[in-house]
Design a protein around this nucleic acid. Structure first.
Length: 409
RNA sequence: GGGGGAGUGCCCGAGUGGCCAAAGGGAGCAGACUGUAAAUCUGCCGGCGAAGCCUACGGAGGUUCAAAUCCUUCCUCCCCCA
């Protein structure tokens, strides 16, 4: 049994940033093995963004590992807490969500999450179930267990406090509510990104208050977004969604700065650390082309959510467009008749770009033309005033930039 | 309750009467180059069929030939004192 515990600990600790605490976890694991009782691994999710992206996957993957070790994942959809909004890592309060939005987001979330989790070993709970019935009296009791000093310990609160930025009372309630989730389900372990550390710790405090054994907390690194600067997030638009098309995922991974390739290898693939180290060395010494490493990474990521075949296809497609500057295999088509006003049979290039959805405003379309970013059948359009008639456009291919194409039919 | 400060373009942030569609940075977009949608460099980056015009610096009024900049008032936020 000793060996089994050790083995599990190894798996659990891999890639994690912090484990509080290893001894307690070992004890819990021992109990779990002895009584054949799986541990309850909690992960709270905020139904604020309707798409799961690679950043979420880091934590979800860890949860999956727990499942594979025989434990049960408890996914808590923060449908109630979402009304408050988690202030973690934010410099300002988040806008409130409407109940309908929350519901819609939660549904998408659940759909996507099983790309990673084992459905049979997952329980999904909505925290409105126990938070909604709370009376003011209960909340007063709950808040009596915390002090301002304790809550202000939190890094982002402290920063905001010091720099004179507002902290809503509501936001103080958030960690308390999240902690109450742990009490409600009797969590053994709670997972989260590093920015969640404080909230997770509050869970321990509250569980103790309620006479429960405090949960173990395990924090995972945050994945940086495609911009290579900020953490991956939907709202920053630097994310790679697990439900995106293979081609899109491949391309987005190829667009990450070389400087974060290693991070991605570590956090989004199952490559062993030795291998990653070898790749890093290779790139540092110049014996490996980062572009090639990134290709491999992109392939692995696509493969993870689709298949090896799809990954290969995506790469072929990528090479075709970006390396060989050829046309993609699939080009969206647009009926000329829906674009051209038949009365005069002609259309201005700027209008055409807008109608084809390749530019949002005339100004944007003008700019694209002026900067030489627009091509028709491979020929750069040089004149902003260019007018085209139906015959010229029939079966032609309109291209903006390197990667946006429309076939006119 | 009293005193002080702040609100600028997608974000951060400079600007305190005309030279301001507003410095600088980031993001984004386009071009060049390439090893990739990397890095680097260059350009663009409110809208309008664009000469010019319109909209814009928290909201509403006002002063002025002229306001992001001055005045009044309202809203929001922050700090200090109590």
């Amino acid at each position: 049994m000793e060996a089994e515990i050790k083995g599990q600990l190894e798996v659990i600790k891999s890639r994690a940033v912090e484990l509080i605490s290893e001894e307690e976890l070992a004890k819990k694991l021992a109990g779990s093995l002895r009584y054949n009782r799986p541990l309850k691994i909690k992960l709270g999710v905020d139904p604020t963004a309707p798409d799961i992206h690679l950043g979420h996957c880091v934590v979800l993957e860890k949860l999956r590992e727990f499942q594979d070790l025989g434990h049960v994942a408890i996914l808590i959809i923060g449908d109630y807490t979402a009304r408050i909004g988690d202030p973690s890592g934010r410099s300002e309060a988040r806008p409130l969500l409407k109940p309908e939005e929350i519901e819609r987001n939660a549904r998408t979330y659940v759909e996507q999450v099983f790309k990673i989790l084992d459905e049979d070993k997952t329980r999904i709970l909505f925290n409105s179930q126990w938070l909604e019935p709370l009376k003011l009296e209960d909340i007063i009791l709950l808040s009596s267990k915390f002090t301002l000093a304790r809550l202000l310990e939190r890094d982002d609160f402290q920063k905001r406090f010091r720099s004179g930025l507002p902290i809503s009372l509501l936001e103080f309630l958030y960690p308390i509510m999240q902690a109450y989730d742990s009490v409600a389900i009797g969590a053994d372990v709670e997972l989260g990104g590093t920015e969640q550390k404080f909230n997770l710790l509050v869970g321990r405090d509250l569980q103790r208050e309620y006479g429960q054994e405090p949960q173990i907390i395990l924090t995972m690194p945050l994945l940086v977004g495609t911009d290579g600067v900020n953490k991956m997030s939907k709202s920053l638009g630097n994310y790679i969604g697990v439900s995106e098309e293979p081609q899109e995922i491949f391309g987005k991974v190829m667009s990450i700065p070389d400087s974060v390739i290693i991070d991605y290898l570590e956090l989004t693939t199952d490559l062993d650390p030795q291998e990653i180290l070898r790749l890093k060395k290779g790139m540092d010494e110049g014996s490996l082309n980062p572009g090639d490493v990134k290709r491999m990474l992109s392939r692995k990521i696509v493969q993870r959510f689709y298949s090896e075949e799809k990954a290969r296809e995506a790469e072929r497609e990528f090479n075709q467009i970006f390396r060989d500057h050829e046309l993609p295999s699939h080009i969206p088509e647009l009926f000329l008749s829906s674009v051209i006003d038949l009365s005069d049979g002609k259309i201005w290039i700027v209008q055409l770009l807008r109608k084809a959805g390749l530019a949002n405003t005339n100004s944007e379309a003008r700019r694209l033309v002026e900067q030489g970013g627009v091509k028709i059948n491979g020929e750069t359009v040089a004149d902003v005033e260019l007018e085209l008639n139906q015959d010229q456009l029939k079966r032609s291919i309109l291209q903006v930039g390197k990667r946006r194409f429309v076939r006119l039919i």
